[in-house]
Amino acid sequence: MKKLTGLLLPVLMIAACTSNHTGKTLPIYGEREPVTKALNSQQVTDTVYHTIPAFKFINQFGDSITDKSLNGKIYVADFFFTSCPSICPIMHRNMLNVYNAFKDEKDINIISFSIDPKHDSVAVLKKYADGLGISGNSWWLLQGDKMATYDLSKSFLVTTPKEDEKEKFIHDGYFILIDKQKRIRGSYDGTNEEQVKQLIEDIKTLKAEPAETAK
């Protein structure tokens, strides 16, 4: 039996990776492990997926935002800083398209973590949000403990931000799509207009996915 699972697992993993793009469901990213437990005197094997862990930050309105604030929501996350001279403007020009497509849908959120919380105070984030032209509660700009932010970035499977003399911070421009079970369902280059169009399509696909029973 063990041998069989050993054989099956790679096959399943490959299938999970390849079968999705044409179908109606999105792939699930990250490490996964099978967990076997007893249910009604039978051995049942379930898969435990990589999920985004608990966090606590402050948004541009000064409200405390935790992972629980996003319970039951699909969301897109990215990492940025307001004084970023390189890729952030183009990321947020593209993110505005995502915002405009879903701002009236209550179960879809955008969260942008500042990787420069020292400069990006709540007031700075609010000013940035106003300048960007976003209002309401569908796009949160978050700041909090810097190390906690950098640690959390690992769970989104993006490059951990790094301070740099010339560019201030080095980070990547990925938009990460998270489902209602807090699993990673997509990763898109936020500086690429075409990939962001795909993200908008994928959010619609994800929204149409049949609701799973709670874990």
Partner: peptide
Amino acid sequence: CQNCHGKNGEGLSALI
């Protein structure tokens, strides 16, 4: 220039 000022020189909202 394009990252900030845009492909068509459109800038970015009230920021750029």
